[in-house]
Write a protein that binds this DNA or RNA. Structure first.
Lengths: 135, 135
DNA sequence: CTAACGTACAACCAAATGGTTGTAGATGGG
DNA sequence: CCCATCTACAACCATTTGGTTGTACGTTAG
């Protein structure tokens, strides 16, 4: 039971998502590429770093599913995926709901006033099955 | 007055926030520490890595403002900050609203069919003033 | 065809990450 | 007091990251 397709090997995807967001230049690229009219070269011109560096940033965003590229002639137009933020938000929601569930369970235990060993003891809750902490 | 605490040197903070979230072990720690009853040692016992490694993960979470530590005797209890997810969500909101504003502005331009220099022309939109791309 | 432009990728480098072990201070229990 | 436990931190190591330069390739313009 993988909740929603989120929990199997999703750790990788969530890792990439948050990692991609954890850089100011990349967040800035995201903001600039909503209209999808910017080529990688044009983007690169906006930053005090080489074309290759910006190209790598775009690649990171692409692997995280935050942008897509569309070729127009010899240019490659970068566009921010409209659903991208939604996906990030869902990752946060999952995190939040997981611990909201914990709080709820705790409330339940307090009501029952017994926890000796019978209660539903928070089974696993982890997401990482492949590269996770219990690898 | 830095808007809301978000926009001055916040790039750093947002960096730390997303970076902290970009690791499965750390997200797992967050889930486990909602009730705040777990000491670092007890946490460490849950992962196939050394105490020192888990200690570092907790430090990363702490620097990102995602957990707090409270000393109880010789133990240090880790607790997930309830507002933490809210902060992450706000960072996403900011990202989203930034580009929603862009889209709105674009729509506005299409309607007005003129932009000579009168309208509120997307002042800056960037967050990084210190270490940002335009450093 | 040739030149210019835009992209892609490889090789290289410094710094940060994520892990290890070892050691040193606090704190609480017998 | 002495010992076990928990925490904290330093030193070290391998890998990744974020940047560089250089080069090769495809496409468009002249």
């Amino acid at each position: 039971m993988v909740v929603d397709g989120i929990a199997d090997e999703t750790g990788d995807i969530v890792d990439r998502l948050f990692h991609a967001l954890a850089d100011g230049t990349r967040r800035d690229i995201l903001r600039r590429c909503v209209r999808g009219e910017l080529s990688v070269s044009r983007l690169a011109a906006a930053y005090p770093m080489s074309f290759a560096a910006v190209h790598k940033h775009v690649a990171v965003l692409e692997r995280a599913g935050l942008v897509t590229k569309e070729r127009r002639g010899r240019e490659q137009l970068v566009r921010t995926d409209p659903d991208a933020v939604g996906r990030a938000r869902r990752a946060l929601d999952e995190l939040e709901s997981a611990w909201r569930a914990r709080v709820d369970r705790m409330s339940g235990l307090l009501a029952e006033d017994d926890d000796g060993g019978g209660g539903p003891r928070a089974p696993d809750l982890r997401e990482n099955t492949t590269k996770g902490p219990d690898g």
